[in-house]
Design a protein around this nucleic acid. Structure first.
Length: 410
RNA sequence: GCGAACGUAGCUCAGUUGGUUAGAGCGCGGGCUUGUGGUGCCCGAUGUCGAGGGUUCGAAUCCCUUCGUUCGCCCCA
């Protein structure tokens, strides 16, 4: 029998769970103050849902999807990203009547890649999406939301924001053919990977790390030369407002992102602390996507954040809750001890009832757990209907009635 | 999917040119102390040397395969 988890998957326990919950809490806080509504969708969907939107030639579709045949021969895929399923759900449930629609979701995604630090086959993502507006305020609000969330969660970490604009669909197709033409002339000098992309996906050559490619990219056509007036205005608006709001960013004109549906604004928040899997949050605008999925022709913008990567950057969480270790000196006082525990729990006090009935071992155990207080119950306590309350930090202990203990601790 | 490194006790790691019964520290269990923990002292157990196969009189050590982790590429969160 296989007793290890599947490659690229992990169990969460201890600190990881505390951190995961802390992220969830913070996300739910931001969703409230930015007025986003949560949506929970199935983790598998029809394979067709992903193929077109992500791009038939994108790596995600080509080699990273977990796809299998259902018993009735339908092709099913474990969701590799959340934007597409969220929009599908919005369309399926007629949620796009009143616009804009602001949705967020948290949950597992699946991609069959080679596992690495910060890259797993099942990983958890946070997604925020705004459907139904072209207004740059929505792009900016999402960037500010991501920025505040990261600063709140990771105040001591250096995180860089990169932005770019891909222009509108027209920009993109003109730019794409200009790039193809340029790269065809330099074909021999390009890396093998990049040569394969000249026709299928020339834009992706721009973010190659190969030194020769980087050099060739220096003189490649610039996307900004292909912006429409509208796209240009949008992009400079965003930059101006981010500057006015003192949000640091840099423009990275090679930032193109891997999923086909992006246009106009794209952005990434990156860290220097995770090696090569350094994107914490990535997103952008996807104006044609909802229509492509069979919904109304409305624009959209959103981002996704990787929870595992955030967890790796977080400091350990210390519990602030007052805990009491309840120790019964021997089993004959069990009944009294359980009654005391019950009374204290009614006051919402966290009681760890110790089953060892051995004072020394129990105190040692309490100490290891880092518990502050212990209640000790033996013959004298039972006879006088009291408890001994011991502060394990100060080593001070006192005999008290249960009522006084409740007063002391609340 | 490609390239590379690594895998020894719960954890961090030693382990010589292949040699007999595989080690240390931390942690764990017991005792010094039968109603008092953290420090100290004494004692004890750590184990499929990732797994499988091969070479050899003999393998943790050499070879092959495989699984896993890490790093880079790729990709992305």
């Amino acid at each position: 029998m296989k007793i290890t988890p599947i490659r690229g998957t992990h169990d969460f326990f201890g600190q990881q769970v505390l951190k995961y919950r802390a992220i969830q809490d913070l996300i739910s806080h931001y969703s409230r103050i930015y007025n986003f509504e949560e949506i929970i969708t199935p983790i598998f969907e029809s394979t067709d849902l992903f193929k077109k939107p992500l791009g038939e030639n994108s790596d995600v579709v080509l080699k990273e999807m977990y796809t299998f045949k259902d018993k009735n021969e339908d092709l099913i895929t474990l969701r590799p990203e959340y934007t597409t399923p969220m929009i599908r759900a919005a369309i399926s449930n007629n949620l796009l009547e009143k616009l804009p629609k602001k949705l967020y979701g948290i949950g597992p995604m699946f991609r069959r890649e080679r596992p690495q630090k910060g890259r797993y086959r099942q990983f958890n993502q946070i997604n925020f999406e705004i459907l139904g507006t072209h207004d740059v305020s929505s792009d900016i609000e999402l960037i500010i939301l991501a920025n505040s969330f990261l600063q709140n969660l990771l105040p001591d970490k250096k995180i860089n924001l990169f932005i770019n604009s891909l222009g509108d669909k027209d920009t993109l197709s003109k730019f794409s053919s200009a790039l193809s033409k340029y790269f065809r002339e330099k074909k021999e000098k390009l890396s093998e990977e990049s040569q394969n992309k000249i026709i299928s996906n020339p834009i992706r050559i721009l973010d190659s790390k190969d030194p020769m490619d980087v050099e060739i990219n220096l003189n490649a056509p610039k996307i900004s030369d292909f912006y429409s007036n509208e796209a240009n205005e949008k992009f400079s608006n965003i930059q101006k407002i981010l500057k006015d709001m003192s949000i640091d960013f840099s423009i990275n004109k090679n930032l193109v992102r891997g999923l086909d549906y992006y246009c106009h604004t794209v952005f990434e928040f990156k860290t220097l602390d995770l090696g090569s899997q350094d994107t914490l949050i990535g997103g952008g605008r996807y104006d044609g996507l909802t229509k492509l999925l069979g919904g109304p022709d409305i624009p959209g913008v959103g981002w996704a954040g990787g929870i595992e990567r955030l967890i790796m950057l977080m400091d350990d969480i210390k519990s602030l809750q007052k805990k009491i270790h309840l120790i019964i000196i021997n089993e004959s006082f069990r009944e009294y001890g359980l009654k005391v525990a019950n009374q204290l729990r009614k006051e919402n006090i966290n009681i760890h009832f110790d089953y060892k009935y051995n004072l020394k071992k129990s105190l040692s155990y309490a100490n290891q757990l880092g518990v502050r207080y212990a209640i000790i119950i033996g013959e004298e306590e039972v006879q006088k209907n009291i408890c001994t309350l011991k502060d394990l930090n100060s080593n001070v202990q006192e005999k008290k009635t249960i009522e006084n203990i409740i007063k002391d601790l609340s």
